[in-house]
Design a binder for these strands. Structure first.
Length: 481
RNA sequence: CGGGAUGUAGCGCAGCUUGGUUAGCGCGCCUGCUUUGGGAGCAGGAGGUCGCGGGUUCGAAUCCCGCCAUCCCGACCA
């Protein structure tokens, strides 16, 4: 239940879910949309998305992919062409049955993902090995009628990027799948400061229609896992369904091997839950709409000169490449603003008042990782702050990694497993049987999150059923969002 | 789809049990004055088809029936 007091948010330890729900609204990231499960992304939240988007888009283009745009509406029959795909998505489709005042001859689905249309178009564009690889990406909105919507994590409509590529053979397509996974890992670590674990999904957790699915898993501060991006190797499943074929150098007609991969606005939910605390958001500098917020303090004529100095400082910092904002709201007290920017996750706050102006200094406070405030010369700030922001970014990643490691246990018996997944992750051997996964889920709510790529080789007995272990290494289990 | 709950001002709520003048409170908002270094104070003011439809009644936010919506907990999922 929301607090009736208008300040602050419910502590994480009291009710993590309430903390999250109150925070996304109070920090002005989002507001509820009028239709069920929809979200309005407000300017402050959309800026975070734009920053993330730009970082990822640059990397996607640098690795040879081109952006394109495919239609929102897809003929229903397309979905049916790939058996597993339609089975996986049918329950969550939104379907347009009427348009132009008439019932449509063939219903149109609002894309839940675009493998089908893109597959259809690829089949028209590819005919020779010279047309390969075809490396496409699109930024789009998609709709999935989920049973239980949650801001950023699972909204009815969400924004994402979906890469779709076609290759001559399995090796190339698999390499592409891993390349995309690596892009995601980089963005998660270097931009979002998330200590993600890249790994492969077990067969039961695969994307509908994929031969192999890979993921980056992040740990939230309540110990639960969040899938922050996935990449899929489709083998020739979609190529066969949509006729994506090419003539090889040897003159043979061959099916393409395709991939797809996506990262979505869910990533923002991951950032909120991986870094946030009882005071509110903690945004990594690389994604903060305002990396530095200046709070001018004073009254009357004093305030005018403080404001002038604040604006001059902001201009300086902007020159130094910092995203800076001066909080000029006159009706609010400094104390209110301090709390407000802490709630909204601004990495660094600068307090500038008459005392400081006289001394030529400013009070600098970091959102986390620094005891108290420090007093620095105004003239030095433009030179000092970029380094502070970079250090703070690193600090957040280290903190996330430490938290993850402290909440991950290597377990070899069932009691330890149950205990580990109640507060975090368990690294355990598993037999690989779907029925055994289901059994574990029924008992503990935990699911296999991934088989970590860099896990050392190990074999033994299944943590649950004592059968021979599969995968040749340990699997991460955890409760997931 | 199962379980639980809620719809009263922008937000958070009280009022309903036991029907009765003009539906209250806190926050926010507007105006004015005083304030501003950790969530400012005083004064004045604006803001409501009480979720929708029907019924009972002289009279319904309140009682009855139906509907709709939303939220929370699970199962599905990026």
């Amino acid at each position: 239940m929301p607090r009736n007091d208008d300040h602050g948010v419910t502590p994480q330890g009291e009710d993590f879910s309430a903390w999250y729900n109150e925070l996304v609204t109070k920090a002005q990231l989002v507001d509820r949309g009028p239709a069920r499960g929809t979200m309005v992304i407000r300017p402050y939240g959309y800026r975070v998305w734009e920053l993330l988007q730009s970082e990822l888009d640059t990397r996607i283009k640098d690795t040879g992919h081109d952006n394109a745009y495919f239609p929102l509406l897809i003929p229903e029959s397309y979905l049916r062409r790939e058996a597993e795909h339609v089975e996986g998505f049918a329950p969550e489709l939104a379907v347009v049955t009427h348009a132009g005042g008439k019932e449509l001859e063939e219903p149109l689905v609002i894309r839940p993902t675009s493998e089908t249309v893109i597959g259809e178009m690829m089949s028209r564009w590819i005919s020779s090995h010279r047309d390969l690889p075809l490396l496409l990406n699109q930024w789009a909105n998609i709709v999935r009628w989920e049973l239980r919507p949650r801001m950023f994590l699972r909204t009815t409509e969400f924004l994402w990027q979906e890469g779709h590529t076609a290759h001559a053979d399995e090796a190339e397509a698999l390499a592409e799948t891993m390349l995309a996974l690596d892009l995601y890992t980089q963005v998660a670590r270097d931009v979002a400061a998330l200590a993600v674990v890249p790994g492969e999904k077990t067969p039961g957790e695969r994307f509908a229609g994929a031969a192999q699915t890979f993921t980056i898993e992040a740990m939230m501060r309540d110990g639960r896992a969040l899938q922050a991006g996935t990449t899929h190797y489709m083998a020739t499943n979609f190529a066969r369904a949509f006729g994506i074929q090419y003539t090889s150098e040897a003159g043979q007609l061959e099916y393409c091997h395709t991939t797809s991969w996506g990262m979505s606005t869910r990533m923002i939910g991951a950032i909120i839950m991986a870094h946030g605390d009882d005071k509110g958001l903690v945004l990594p500098p690389n994604l903060a709409p305002y990396q530095v917020v200046v709070v001018p303090i004073g009254r009357g004529e004093q305030f005018d000169s403080v404001l002038a100095a604040s604006r001059a400082l902001a201009a300086d910092l902007k020159q130094a490449g910092i995203r800076v904002h001066v909080d000029e709201r006159t009706q609010l007290s400094p104390g209110f603003k301090f709390n407000d920017w802490e709630l909204r996750g601004a990495p660094i706050r600068i307090e500038l008042g008459p005392r400081d102006l006289d001394a030529g200094t400013a009070v600098v406070a970091q959102r986390l990782g620094m005891a108290g405030k420090s007093t620095l010369a105004i003239a030095d700030l433009a030179a000092t702050l970029p380094g502070m922001l970079a250090d703070y970014q690193d600090y957040l990643l280290r903190r996330a990694a430490t938290f993850r490691d402290e909440h991950t246990a290597v377990v070899d018996d069932w009691a330890e497993f149950v205990s580990a997944v109640s507060t975090g992750w368990a690294l355990a051997l598993h037999c690989g049987a779907a029925a055994c996964e289901d059994d574990i889920k029924a008992e503990t709510a935990a699911t296999p999150r991934c088989i970590p790529l860099d896990g050392p080789p190990e074999t033994g007995r299944c943590i649950r059923c004592d059968a021979d272990s599969a995968y040749g290494k340990r699997v991460i289990f955890g409760r997931a969002y």
